[in-house]
Design a protein around this nucleic acid. Structure first.
Lengths: 182, 182
DNA sequence: GTCTATAGAGTGATAGAC
DNA sequence: GTCTATCACTCTATAGAC
């Protein structure tokens, strides 16, 4: 039997492709394979609740797979940073998939989901700052790192070339690792 | 009497705030002060033509105020770069306004306006590459610069703090200028 | 008469909610 | 599937400039 959480990955794909406003219930119904009745059974508050569920599930994935590992003291800071870039590249399909939080930050969606968006970026920068404590400017570099990844996703998407993402994130990673050796 | 181009700045504000899908004719009519009759008189193909007009006007502004000055050989490369950061900060309200091309790149709008989005970023990177010819990696740094500005706009918006933009673009500018002195 | 600008009632289609 | 609201858009009407 289908459960609510099973439909969240499909919902994520729809919101990534169409945005919040562009994702009609007809499109959602088609991509999830669920009728409107089922959708309102799982998400009584409608589309807004669907998007919240997506944001929460993606946010939870980043927490366990990206943010928490950045604070594990038994792993060297350089290895933590390298692992972060690997996990992030995997999640964003090396530039082929956008960041929902970034897209929602730029779009009209920010009005509805601003708190979740802010929480995601705060958590990322905070975790990165911990891993970069061995540098001379942990908070500044963490902010720069998160921002650069978002920029790489924008540019990669704009130029329709995932190599742009790979190139930019590789440069960033190397620059951070160099700063950690000081 | 009103002319078509007078309404474009108001249209730009609407699309920036609501996105393409979120900007209904009712909202557009309200913010421009024009009835539907006037809007369809100026833009016979409707919303799509309105957005194209906005993109074209913003693109033209960047061409004359940002891209072309980057190629003026009578000005030193360092001064050209500094002037670019000033003009860009002015246009983006130091992080308070988003980049329409960046937002359209991440959103559903890319399907309709992808060519214009790609042209904007190509032109920017190309012009910057010229100004950075005195460095060891003009094209790479140009790509990195444009991407970082976009990332700064995303993060600034996400955290609702324009100081994030000011801080990140200042760091980037200084880093570029340092690379030019080599 | 012709052209551009304006206003807004009215169209069918489709939206989200239930 | 049914509901109502709203969507993008069309059309008619009217105004003044030439």
């Amino acid at each position: 039997m289908a459960v609510r959480s099973d439909s969240v990955p499909a919902l994520a794909g729809v919101f990534r492709t169409y945005g919040f406003d562009g994702a009609s219930l007809a499109v959602i119904s088609e991509h999830t394979g669920l009728g409107k009745g089922s959708l309102y059974n799982f998400f009584p508050r409608g589309k807004e609740e669907m998007a919240e569920a997506v944001l929460d599930q993606v946010g939870a994935w980043f927490m366990t797979e990206v943010f928490d590992p950045l604070r594990v003291e038994s792993v060297s800071p350089a290895e933590r940073i390298t692992a972060m870039f690997d996990a992030v590249a995997e999640h964003f399909g090396s530039g082929n998939r956008i960041c929902l939080f970034g897209a929602f930050a730029l779009g009209n969606e920010r009005a509805r989901f601003g708190a979740r968006v802010q929480g995601y970026f705060d958590a990322w920068i905070s975790a990165l700052t911990t891993a970069l404590e061995c540098t001379d400017d942990p908070a500044g570099l963490a902010e720069e790192c998160v921002s650069t990844i978002q920029g790489a996703l924008v540019l990669s998407r704009a130029l329709d070339d995932s190599l742009v993402y790979t190139r930019l994130s590789g440069r960033l990673r190397d620059r951070l690792l160099a700063r950690m050796e000081l």
